[in-house]
Design a protein around this nucleic acid. Structure first.
Lengths: 170, 170
DNA sequence: TTCGGTGCAAATTATTTGCATCTGG
DNA sequence: CCAGATGCAAATAATTTGCACCGAA
């Protein structure tokens, strides 16, 4: 286990879910989907690949990319709206907010209830159809502040090395 | 003029601003900075380049990339937190929110006052230092809805062609 | 059986970097 | 004069795509 997995993994209810979307349920897709919904660190494609490879050594990186794209197209996964250079994915499609460290690249869910997307319905009325509304916060996490890695500040994606941490790719 | 420019351009107050940050004020930087602060469409590096080239035909794309990076490092510009495949820049560094069309890639400012970042200070207290907090909305703009381009839905960055629009790169 | 899915390798696209030259302060 | 800035071209890194084979329904 590379990172702490919290949320309950997807057993085989994925079977019905995929069928409902007219998607074939392959060994690879099941593993990718399970890994993504179980993860809580909003992994990038390569990270999902590395983790799934522990169970399916022959899976290729582009299958991961293709599967993540398919899951997004069917609304079973989402991309986190952030400004790094690598796409980060989220298996939790329920509306929620995000918090990102510009130093080490970690992205966490932001548990708040102060913000209600419905409140700005009329403000966006004439713009078009809203698919998703969330609060995005960028800053330096306490771990980076403590390690002094956040001194320079800036940078995004997976920047500056964090002492004691592997960082780089999440 | 490629797109409607609204906000007041930066005259020469840029001279003092750059000096204050210890940055040399070159012809190229001035044009890039002016173009960025005048733009209201959150352009990508290549778009800034195309626009500035009308005045400075010899400027190179990597100078634009380097300058945008420098401006960000000094807090004179920001990258919009979004999930497209190309970085989008913002010359307006005052706190505000964004609205993005997943179909044509356009990004607009979202004029709302309902959301006050200060309200979640305590929610983020133990996480670290907040540098920026904003609401990000993703959806399909009315122009795409009308043209039917938003039918398929999904996609991000600069996807599906919009009839009557140049789209592709913003 | 059949069409969608997969793996591999090559191709694209966005962004960065090395280096020699040039220039603002 | 000189450290920092620029242009050009080559290098990276992330993501996509062509194609032949394979397996779920």
């Amino acid at each position: 286990m590379t990172t702490p997995e919290s949320k309950k993994p997807t057993p085989d209810h994925a079977r019905n879910l995929f069928a409902a979307h007219g998607l074939k349920l392959t060994h690879q897709r099941l593993e990718i989907y399970s890994e993504l919904t179980a993860a809580c660190d909003h992994p990038c494609a390569e990270t999902v690949w590395r983790r799934v490879r522990e169970r399916v050594p022959t899976i290729s990186l582009d299958t991961v990319y293709r599967t993540l794209a398919v899951l997004r197209e069917h609304g079973l996964a989402a991309r986190v709206p952030m400004d790094g250079d690598t796409a980060r994915f989220d298996g939790d499609i329920s509306p929620h907010h995000h918090l990102a460290c510009e130093c080490c690249g970690r992205i966490d869910d932001l548990p708040i209830s102060e913000f209600d997307p419905a409140a700005l319905q009329e403000s966006v009325a004439g713009w078009g159809r809203v698919r998703d509304a969330q609060v995005v916060i960028r800053g330096i996490c306490c771990r980076c502040l403590e390690s002094g890695a956040g001194d320079r500040g800036l940078a995004d994606g997976e920047p500056a090395p964090v002492p004691g941490e592997s960082a780089k790719i999440q």
